[in-house]
């Protein structure tokens, strides 16, 4: 494990160097991701052009949810987003090489790439988060500031776990799990962008307890925004994100371990 941590900067840098070789393309990519973020937020903004409150939440508050969720999601995307290459690795047998090295297989697949291009999207998310922090009427204090950092860290961990579990399905579906993966990653992000009280009860229960998206931002944000919970959930849930994130990561690791035992390689 320590060998793996020690190597991380080196492997990440080797990937970044490869990407920086194509400077123009990299610049275009940053712009592309910038525009993409903008488009995502524009959708929310367009809706608020027609109403002052969405299910009781102001634009500032939704922007805060959006910002925290989006920043977490894009950091996770930067670190593990290339797991959506896993179907290709599995189908082409490129995973063989990974499995001959004295490093954890999941670790190696994750370090196959490092999505520096997502910096553009993260920056955009941060801009919106900063604006939201100043306009959503948050009674800032040290506890809330700390909570914001914890929220982003836990959100990132939860998204990473979701990504891993989703990607691992390809070992059983042989390369066709990618789309389900999207339902949980991009779909998860989309879901966490909005206050969960807009969703129907059954969907909300799934988000809260099965795919723990409600812990990405909704619960901790209730504390930061000092809001009443329209759903009247126990106060304790607002501080449960770290535990949930840890559990999610452990589950993800176990699922991956099962998946890799199903790896079939290729015939040539």
């Amino acid at each position: 494990m320590d060998n793996e941590l020690r190597l991380f900067p080196r492997l990440a840098w080797s990937r970044v160097r490869g990407q920086l070789e194509y400077r123009l393309s990299f610049a275009l990519m940053l712009i592309g991701y910038f525009v993409m973020t903008l488009a995502d937020f524009l959708a929310i903004w367009v809706i608020f052009q027609h109403l002052p409150l969405l299910a009781g939440w102001s634009l500032g508050e939704v922007a805060f949810l959006y910002g925290t969720s989006y920043v977490s999601f894009r950091i996770a995307d930067m670190v593990v987003g290339h797991l959506d290459m896993l179907p290709t690795l599995v189908r082409t047998g490129a995973l063989d090489t990974v499995l001959t090295r004295p490093l954890g297989s999941l670790y190696q697949v994750v370090t196959i790439d490092f999505g520096l291009r997502h910096v553009g999207a993260i920056a955009q998310g941060l801009v919106i988060l900063v604006i939201a922090c100043t306009t959503a009427g948050i009674p800032w204090d040290a506890g809330r500031a700390l909570m914001l950092l914890v929220t982003i860290a836990c959100g990132t961990a939860i998204f990473i776990a979701i990504w891993i579990v989703g990607a691992t399905t390809v070992f059983w579906t042989l390369g066709s799990g990618l789309e389900v993966l999207n339902a949980f990653t991009y779909g998860g992000n989309q879901m966490a962008n909005y206050p969960i009280n807009i969703y129907a009860g059954w969907l909300r229960r799934i988000i809260a307890f099965f795919v723990p998206l409600a812990f990405v931002t909704y619960f901790p944000s209730l504390y930061i925004l000092a809001r009443e919970d329209p759903l009247h959930t126990p106060e304790l849930l607002r501080f449960a994100s770290p535990l949930v994130a840890l559990a999610a990561l452990l589950v993800a690791r176990a699922v991956w371990g099962q998946g890799i035992r199903h790896y079939q390689s290729t015939g040539s």
Partner: peptide, 13 residues
């Protein structure tokens, strides 16, 4: 042949 080698190297279970 390759299948055997993949098992020997731990690629395949």
């Amino acid at each position: 042949k390759s299948t055997t080698i993949k098992m020997l190297t731990g690629i395949l279970v």
